[in-house]
């Protein structure tokens, strides 16, 4: 396999394009020039840092370090899910629901894939484990955040209907059925759309990367199919679980709608 190594000059040339874009936005007074430059700088810094961390991890391939890295990734993803909610649970559950369902779905699917499908030795080999987990967390994060956000929004909007149905003696499960369905669907849609468009509209990032790295396209495609299925399963189970648990938390033991458990987010 042949990889053309990129030199600093190559990257500098690409950076010139971004600078040109920044100059254009400045001239057009779009007001995004500053954030564009900061975002570019962050890209450079964060990716260099993660590159160093991964290099160190690969050099010291021990289960403990891999687990630590995985936990840090999960912690950040859990925070992201919470930050994307317009109305989120107050206290621990604001963070806990997203983190817990991601832990169950993304971690479980990654471990399953590593031990049964990909099968590196040892099974936690960081070269496979970390990128797999990263892709799964990134996608489940989006799915869970979308599902939770939609759920809390619709329950808030439809609170009169929900309480009307509770007052008629319906269970919370019945009273929220359409809202849970809608929320689960919105969590699943991005993944379904991505699978439907894969290869036709867009070339998935991982496959593209492998092809650039010199992997025969058919091999790269096989990996991509595996990843797509894992992502669909992880995102789907994660979003369904998160929506169910969050909805359960919106009602107490006497099935009263407890919107007081939600706080306005910072969006």
């Amino acid at each position: 396999m042949t990889v053309i190594s990129l030199s600093a000059l190559d990257l500098a040339l690409a950076a010139l394009l971004v600078l040109a874009l920044a100059a254009l936005t400045l001239w057009a007074r779009l007001g995004v020039g500053r954030s564009l430059l900061i975002a570019s700088a962050r890209t450079v810094l964060q990716l260099l840092l993660v590159g160093l961390v991964l290099q160190a991890l690969f050099d010291h391939a021990q289960l403990g370090w891999v687990a630590l890295m995985a936990l840090v990734m999960l912690a950040v993803a859990g925070y992201e899910v919470m930050a994307r909610q317009e109305r989120r649970f107050a206290g621990f559950w604001g963070y806990g629901i997203g983190a817990a369902t991601m832990f169950v779905s993304a971690f479980a699917v990654t471990v399953l894939a590593l031990t049964t499908m990909v099968g590196p030795t040892p099974w936690w080999e960081p070269q496979y484990a970390i990128p797999l987990l990263g892709m799964l967390l990134g996608n489940t994060m989006t799915g869970i955040a979308l599902g939770l956000d939609r759920l809390t929004q619709t329950v808030w909007r439809e609170r009169r209907v929900i309480e009307g149905r509770l007052a008629l003696g319906e269970s919370w499960v019945n009273a929220t059925a359409t809202m849970r369905r809608e929320a689960s669907r919105s969590g699943l849609m991005p993944t379904i759309n991505a699978m439907a468009a894969a290869g036709v509209v867009s070339l998935p990032g991982m496959m593209t990367g492998q092809i650039l790295a010199g992997v025969p396209p058919v091999e790269a495609v096989k990996y991509q199919i595996l990843i797509m299925f894992l992502i669909a399963a992880g995102t789907g189970f994660g979003a369904l679980g998160a929506v169910w648990f969050a909805c359960r938390r919106l009602f107490d033991h006497r099935s009263r709608l407890r919107l007081d458990r939600l706080r306005a987010g910072r969006r």
Partner: peptide, 19 residues
């Protein structure tokens, strides 16, 4: 159970909800 209670003790608001 809350469902049984609310069937026996029926709350009807000023604006009834329809879904």
């Amino acid at each position: 159970a809350p469902t049984d209670w609310r069937r026996k003790v029926a709350y009807v608001p000023a604006e009834t909800a329809w879904w």
